[in-house]
Amino acid sequence: MALWLLRRLVQAGFVMLAMSAIVFIGLHAIGNPIDILISPEADQAERARAIAALGLDKPLWEQYWLFLQGALHGDLGRSFVFNEPALRLIAGRMPATLELAVTAVLLSVCIGLPLGLYAGLHPNSFTGRLVMTGSIFGFSLPSFWVGLMLIMVFAVTLGWLPSSGRGETISIAGVGWSFLTVDGWRHLLLPALNLALFNISLVLRLTRAGVRETLPLDYIRFARAKGLTPGRVIYVHVLRNILIPVVTVIGLEFGSTIAFSVVTESVFAWPGMGKLIIDSINVLDRPVIVAYLMITVALFVTINLVVDLLYTLLDPRVRLGGRR
């Protein structure tokens, strides 16, 4: 187990290294990196200082080495717009994005799992078919348009919920959280639902397929032949088996959820790192873009690692595989 973990950590390190190389090469391939990394308004002296500081007068491999060192020390340049270290800027916006993404994931399980169970147990019923048709829309609809429609219906027409911002937050350890206040929840609900839509469909379909696949299996029949109540058969025997793929996929999708929060945050003016990156791209604040990229890659690598661990914990066949 320890060996496995070590191997995974080394692998993760390699992915990070590869990505940093790609980003680095990308920066150079587009043109003179000085134009990319330094504000166009900078004067000649400032340019010279930056070139020296960034080591742009040195050979390419040495530049990459410096870039790596900077990344390891958490120094990925300063934002031109905010005049703040890019990393600190993104870290400050990260809680809002994580709050949104976690809420969306919880929503997708709370909605997708029961609907999928129902559709799987009653595949030919009207409601079962309706749920499945609905899930096609969940996959097909571009999420930004759904976000607009949510605003149109719930914020503009009905006036029930606000259309933008985080609302009232309560600060814990210097970070504001919306989910602690009623007003914050009112602001959180629409964007989280918007972000969850794809995952709801995904969980729903996975659950339904799992139920359809599991029900005819011998061990379910055997469980029924033991005289177990239908509730116990479904909620223990069927559900336990479905949870493995659902948790795995939800975990793997968590990264995508964070990536897609770029769209949701733009629609609902949610002040997370997704909104920040779009704003930065539009004003060509490149250090922030590079920092965002490196942070996201790190996040993805971590998520994949955690999901693998979770999967191992959930499935005894994998967990105890070596012991037999």
């Binding site: 299996l217 011998d218 177990l228 066949r317």
Partner: peptide, 24 residues
């Protein structure tokens, strides 16, 4: 019927690899 199953009438299945739930 459920009260009879397993209590008064029990069943044994063909494939022992498949009759026990793998995750319990």
């Amino acid at each position: 019927l459920r009260q009879l199953r397993g209590h008064d009438i029990a069943m044994i299945f063909q494939d022992p690899m498949m009759t026990l739930n793998p995750v319990l």
